[in-house]
Design a protein around this nucleic acid. Structure first.
Lengths: 255, 255
DNA sequence: CGTTACTGTGTATCGCATACGCGGTACTGC
DNA sequence: GCAGTACCGCGTATGCGATACACAGTAACG
């Protein structure tokens, strides 16, 4: 028989409990002047304004109007803070689609919503993800994703697998796009110029080199020099549809 | 009219030139006691033995038998060294498949080869990738990938897009698997135990919570408690085949 | 043989995460 | 009321990280 409250279910990781709002304060000591929420928001503000590299404990503390060490009364480590930041940025998942929406459209919409999140916070893509989803919003997104896969007729394991595939696709593509954009932000040139530069780089490296016929053919097709009207978002959607085609084959095959 | 040699084609990034073996030494000063290759190998050894966190400049220098600062005579920054490490680990791409092999099998084999690389060096997955492929082995893998897509009848832009999709899939899945394995290596338990633990965690968090019907259904299916015979590698292959199905639809549609 | 460019290295700077201990505070049980 | 106690915010200290810089030695060049 345990004397503690139910929030104290054996050995949940501290940060997880904090994020879910379990673990209450025994109102013993002085009143707290900060709040976990405020700290996380300060961290988000720093990251958004100055990037992940600038997101140090001291910088966050300054933003929150406290000393560096005060933060450690609220989070166990910087990694934990970053995990909380990720969940904060994720926000709430989109609500369920209109009834009657097919799974394909529903999943596509889900991916687009996730893409929107990563577009708004590209810097956060560099935060390493350590484990399976355990934070509130993350779990809520998981729930929402599973919800949208109802009509697919897949068993539990497959559903999880497919969901991770969609999530992974969005994450990876978003990272690529973010890299591209930061590249031309850094160079101060246009995105087209970055493509042209990369084309020139490849051309210089593979010049007169018989080992790279495919790449040379690529270069001759001028896709770097004369990028079409495709935006990165078009590419994103293209790959997504391709992925969904694969899922459709899976469903047709009956799981 | 330029007096420098051809290796000095205007403004290639220094590290890129170094990796490709352009840029020769004007044999002025004392003989070098180290080599770029040796340093990269030392870095790889450290990473493999002690993980990415332990891979510091001083640690690598000790491994290479030199002082910390000596390394900076060979690489411009730690980031550059990491880029070289990545290319070293990548190694040479697999040769072309047997003639007559269909694109699907060829691409599948390509993905499996890449998966094999990431399996051997899971720690390296945490090295952030900064830009498009420019290092020798990386470009060679790109060439090899494009080569295997010949029969697909896609235009240049689409081919690149598809190749990134395959690469991204392998990278992401490998990262997930590596995280899983490091989790149970850290916990000292079995992989099954990690799944069980995660299931319990989810169960505790979503207990009696009407917001998470799908997750509770998932838990009731016992996939965490009684993992089937699926290994992570099976999951990997499953998702890959799914992705290839999507590409097949693309090809059938005619690009 | 001086000049020059390059070598490896020691030292120094600066920022980082975080352990630790202090003086103060507000609830608890009496 | 009042002592005890558990918690607050913070200053300080530690140790490690990347890397700028200056130095003394060395080898080719003129």
């Amino acid at each position: 028989m345990r004397e503690r409250n139910e929030s104290d279910e054996g050995g949940l990781p501290e940060t997880v409990e904090l994020a879910w709002g379990l673990r209450e304060r025994p109102g013993k000591g002085p009143r707290r002047t900060l709040s976990l929420k405020g700290i996380v928001e300060a961290a988000v503000a720093v990251g958004a304004a100055e990037g992940l590299d600038a997101l140090s404990m001291s910088r966050v503390a300054r933003e929150a109007g406290a000393s560096t060490m005060a933060l450690y009364r609220y989070v166990a480590s910087k990694n934990d803070l970053l995990a909380l930041v990720l969940d904060e940025l994720l926000g709430e998942p989109p609500g369920p689609p209109d009834p009657g929406t097919g799974w394909r459209e529903a999943l596509r919409d889900y991916a687009m919503a996730l893409r929107e999140v990563t577009r708004r916070h590209p810097w956060a893509l560099r935060i390493p993800v350590t484990g399976p989803p355990a934070m509130p919003n993350n779990v809520a997104w998981m729930e929402a994703g599973l919800r949208r896969m109802r009509g697919m007729g897949l068993d539990a394991g497959t559903r999880l697998s497919v969901l991770m595939q969609v999530t992974g696709y969005v994450r990876y593509q978003s990272t690529l796009i973010a890299d591209l954009e930061s590249a031309y932000r850094a160079a101060g040139t246009s995105d087209r110029q970055v493509a042209i530069d990369y084309g020139n780089l490849l051309a210089a490296l593979t010049a007169d080199d018989r080992r790279f016929p495919e790449i040379r053919a690529l270069l001759e097709s001028k896709i770097f020099a004369e990028p079409g009207d495709d935006t990165p978002e078009d590419d994103f959607a293209f790959g997504l549809d391709c992925l969904l085609d694969g899922l459709e084959a899976l469903v047709r095959r009956g799981g």
